[in-house]
Write a protein that binds this DNA or RNA. Sequence first.
DNA 1: GGAAAATCTTTTGCCCCCGAACGACCTGCA
DNA 2: TGCAGGTCGTTCGGGGGCAAAAGATTTTCC
Lengths: 190, 190
Amino acid sequence: MPAHYPLSATEEAVSRRLGSIPVNREALVAVSNLHRAASAVRQHLENSALRAADLTWSAFVVLWVVWIWEEIETRHTAAEAGISKGTLTGIIKTLESRGLIERRQHPDDRRLALLRLTPEGLALMEDLFPAFNAEEAFVVDSLGGEEVLHLADTLRRIITHLEEKGEVRRESLRRDTPVPPRRGGRRRAT
Amino acid sequence: MPAHYPLSATEEAVSRRLGSIPVNREALVAVSNLHRAASAVRQHLENSALRAADLTWSAFVVLWVVWIWEEIETRHTAAEAGISKGTLTGIIKTLESRGLIERRQHPDDRRLALLRLTPEGLALMEDLFPAFNAEEAFVVDSLGGEEVLHLADTLRRIITHLEEKGEVRRESLRRDTPVPPRRGGRRRAT
DNA sequence: GGAAAATCTTTTGCCCCCGAACGACCTGCA
DNA sequence: TGCAGGTCGTTCGGGGGCAAAAGATTTTCC
């Protein structure tokens, strides 16, 4: 999905509009490209390797995590997959109904739930993963080997930085200007 | 949202599971980090700068595009924002109801719709953008100036590569194994 | 031993996201 | 001039996404 306007025209429009406003342009472009790239990559993987199995990106990521760990608690699955627990509940429901994943209660702590792949799920992943990985390789095809490593490392530093300093930063911003909580969330029972 | 298991443990689990399967590990890590980074960045921006205005990421991106171009057709807005036209319809509805955006018919072609910011929308963006950009800067804080430029360039190459070669690639995969279309989409009327 | 606090999963409400179908509109060609 | 074929925005169905509330269970502390 190419953007409609050439990059040069966009640059020009941005300059016209932001003329008097000081901007960190490098950060702007980096963040913008980060999201464009992530969504283009996701789109490609969903429309190539994942299409044959009729899986969404998120469903695949969950299957991958459970596959790798053989048996894993749902809370850890959510953390590893990078989604909230509430979201995970829905995905599990779908994967369970398709017979790819199984849930059982933790023997010692009944609050916990454990996940593992069914034999069908296992067979699917063994078949699907190589195709998926081949598309991941295609995605970074235009980069040199060195550059792929460097990219991964740069991104990892961004992730770590936000994990370590993000909360403090947001906290201090909130001290300056108290802000309303994000909308949404369950309504209190009447 | 740090992952639960240390990276080293994950690496080990992956090795155990994929022992016999050949893997392009560099591509795997790069793609994985790309998505983790994009979602961490988005999360940070939504919970810092965008929180005060009660805007989601997508709503902000749409406002940004319309702001930059002053007046723009909806189809171009969707392309620039990187979302489908169906998604855009919903976001516009929200922004219109909040009085931030206006829609009018194209004078020469009644199929087209034109978007522009209301005075309130304009005031909001002039106020919000500097704060947003400051958080973009924070996000890449841990990188050197050179590295930010290099990151943007690397990501741009991935985007371009997928725009130019992605369709052909998916096409040729489909020739090998015909696949069902993605689920979802409106049902044909009875 | 029992109530309060902590911890987990699920539910709920609001939003985003895509793609196919649809109706309104425009255009080219017979 | 009239209609076939294309384009546009919207609608609709199926899913994902979060935060807060709720319900179930375990732990802590008197």
